[in-house]
Design a protein around this nucleic acid. Structure first.
Lengths: 225, 225
DNA sequence: ATCCCTTTGTGAACCGGTGCACAAAGTCAC
DNA sequence: GTGACTTTGTGCACCGGTTCACAAAGGGAT
């Protein structure tokens, strides 16, 4: 008989939240391979983190391991999924159906468990009305209506930089509080709205910085004054 | 007469490096609008950060401001560009020309200052030989040869998850040490190789977590045991 | 030249997160 | 049931990063 040990601690550190999806992915892989139980050490290796960190992370959701044995894979998958809110279905709208928006709409692995692309919206009359990934592209004028009608709660911004702030404000005006922004701008939003940013250009620049350090190393004085 | 105050501190904090591209973007915008000088306060607002943090960040590259006045926009653009290694030209290869790879290849704003898509590589004979964004798609068998021939130093992985680790090892074997990974896997690489990861699915899951907290709030006990 | 005003650059306290190392807790063999 | 072994959960010291708050530095007016 096991006492389920409820998730007492309601304040999960941000750094932990960011790693839970990693653990979840590793666990799904293990479940598929028929692994029933896993130690913190093995799971940590699979997720590419330190095992002490993993144990501390999991301890924030409750005491779901068994000392001397490890964690039950299925059970842990369920607990993490529940914690992340993946046991419910999230309707996602993608605004901006250019190359990137199209890629996102079609990217099967990305919109997988728990997420569903519920709407595609664009301003270009050329693409409005097209069917992409089985969805009709709707006009930006309909933005607010579409979001309400489809119960969208997460919006993905794949618009040009100039349009992002305005779209952002419009979706917030109809109650959206979670935004994933691919446009290369700093969005300004009221408190209570979460924005996460994916910026390809920034990632490249960070790589370039380190690459330069490696290449130039201690020598290299090409044109530095 | 100004003494240029060389970039003495050769150890720039990682957190600072990650913000420099943000400052750079804001500065470019200001330069275009003809702004010659900017205070840490204004630049901080434009970049969406705290002004003390911005000043500390900039102080790591040297003393480029003037007390009572602010920073010279052009000069700062140059200094940050140089620090990030954007004064040289980086050849980037994109491996995997599916929806995402195609979007990246075409994404003009993304591969802008300092970066140049030098090669597209894919395994699918159907797309090999196609021209995308003005580039010929080459066969994965040619991977190592192409990277050496074009002087590629940064590789973008947009392959399916299964292929990522192998491609990763192959590009490392010909000297690549900077990888931007879009595939949803944890890559294992030797020391000295930098991997940055962009994972759409993880970002969504983090948003879902917070969204659930907001929605459910203090009540909400739908199916939690 | 002097004074006042603005803005930088940074010392110091603080905060969240990491990793070590170990006691507590549980399993398994006999 | 007992003892040896495994693995979790966590106390604690440490570290990088953030923020406040202010002295130092420069500009401009008179």
């Amino acid at each position: 008989m096991k006492s389920p040990s409820q998730p007492r601690d309601r304040g999960i550190p941000e750094a932990t939240v960011a790693r839970l999806p990693l653990y979840l992915r590793a666990l799904h892989g293990m479940a598929e391979r028929g692994i029933a139980t896993v130690s913190s050490e093995d799971l940590a290796v699979a997720a590419g983190v330190n095992s002490a960190k993993l144990r501390k992370d999991l301890s924030h959701l409750g005491s779901y391991g068994t000392r001397g044995v490890g964690y039950d894979v299925e059970y842990l998958v369920y607990q993490i999924s529940r914690e992340l809110g993946l046991t419910q279905d999230w309707a996602v709208a993608i605004v901006g159906v250019g190359n990137l928006g199209r890629a996102l709409a079609n990217y099967g692995g990305f919109v997988s468990r728990g997420f569903r692309v519920a709407a595609l919206v664009d301003a270009d009359p050329e693409v409005v009305g097209d069917t992409i990934a089985g969805l009709n592209v709707e006009h930006i004028d309909e933005l607010e209506a579409v979001i309400k009608r489809r119960g969208v709660s997460i919006v993905v911004l794949a618009t040009p930089a100039e349009a992002a702030q305005e779209v952002c404000e419009r979706v917030i005006s109809v109650g959206v509080t979670s935004i994933l922004n691919f446009a290369p701008v700093v969005l300004s939003v009221p408190d209570g709205v979460d924005v996460r940013k994916v910026d390809l250009s920034i990632e490249l620049q960070i790589l370039a910085f380190h690459e330069q350090r490696k290449a130039g190393g201690p020598l290299m004085a090409v044109d530095s004054q």
